[in-house]
């Protein structure tokens, strides 16, 4: 199809689809009039049943914990798939004969101090925030997922502050893989423990605690949240690390082949400004 034909067909079809949408939307209750009954039942029962005051976390890690298990493994699988696709590339590049062997890192342009210092300063608080988010799922608007992503960004800050080498030292591939596997697998195993105790899969078998919303309340909810945080942090570290490595390899290759065409403005650290 030519671009024009495609555009015409798409416009007509999209108009039809939009009409379908309108037809469907006319059957929805008006905005702000959620009819239930799923939400209200959960709102009514959640605190009593799970001792978690963060109902969204209760849904995520308890009522619909099995969904979250699937979701974690989607991330797990994507990270594994990404490793397959990108590591092949890396191995190949290392074998390429016309490249000079990896040499001293002094070749690489360093990050400026203006970026380095704030980045380093931010790393500690970011780790703290990430940890707090991951461990307070049962009470506040937070949970393993947000905490995990925040932890992974802390590692990205380390990269910004220092160099890729430090990033890799903090997150060696084997370790990241192992942590990721531990996070995702740990979640699955928690469910299995319940099964071994004769309960349904993922049943909340830990004593719920008495004070709703405290750190020790919620039974398996904080536990699962912790493993989710582990898995998410590792998966994102792995994903960012793989892409970083790609960029750096190219950068080094470029540096070696033609020093003149290097433009410092487009170093990966520039992207953190966004």
């Amino acid at each position: 199809m030519s671009q024009r034909q495609r555009l015409i067909l798409f416009s007509v079809a999209m108009a039809g689809l939009a009409a379908c949408f309108g037809w469907a939307a006319s059957g929805l209750p008006g905005f702000g009039n959620y009819p239930g009954p799923y939400g209200p039942v959960i709102l009514h029962d959640a605190v009593a049943q799970t001792r978690a005051t963060g109902v969204v976390s209760a849904v995520n890690f308890d009522y619909r914990g099995f969904d979250t298990l699937g979701e974690e493994f989607i991330l797990f699988t994507a990270a594994a798939g990404l490793s397959v696709v990108l590591r092949r590339l890396r191995g190949e590049r290392e074998r390429e004969p016309d490249r000079e062997p990896e040499t001293d890192n002094s070749n690489k342009p360093g990050t400026s101090a203006a970026v380095k210092v704030p980045a380093l300063l931010f790393t500690g608080p970011t780790v703290l925030i990430g940890w707090w988010l991951a461990s307070h799922a049962q009470a506040n608007p937070s949970g393993g997922f947000q905490g995990g992503v925040t932890l992974a960004s802390a590692l990205a800050l380390v990269y910004l502050a220092g160099e890729f080498i430090a990033f890799r030292r903090l997150s060696p591939v084997m370790l990241t893989d192992a942590v990721e596997a531990a996070g995702a697998g740990g979640f699955a195993v928690i469910g299995l423990i319940a099964l071994a105790m004769g309960l349904p899969y993922l049943d909340n078998f830990v004593p719920l605690g008495t004070i709703p919303g405290s750190v020790s309340s919620g039974g398996t909810i904080p536990l699962i949240s912790f493993f989710v945080g582990l898995e998410v942090a590792a998966a994102f570290t792995l994903i960012i690390g793989e892409f970083l490595e790609q960029t750096l390899l190219i950068r080094r290759g470029l540096w070696i082949t033609s020093r003149s065409s290097w433009s410092p403005g487009s170093s990966p650290s520039a992207c953190m400004g966004s």
Partner: peptide
Amino acid sequence: ALPLILLL
């Protein structure tokens, strides 16, 4: 996170 990955 996504913009970071995309930029890389």
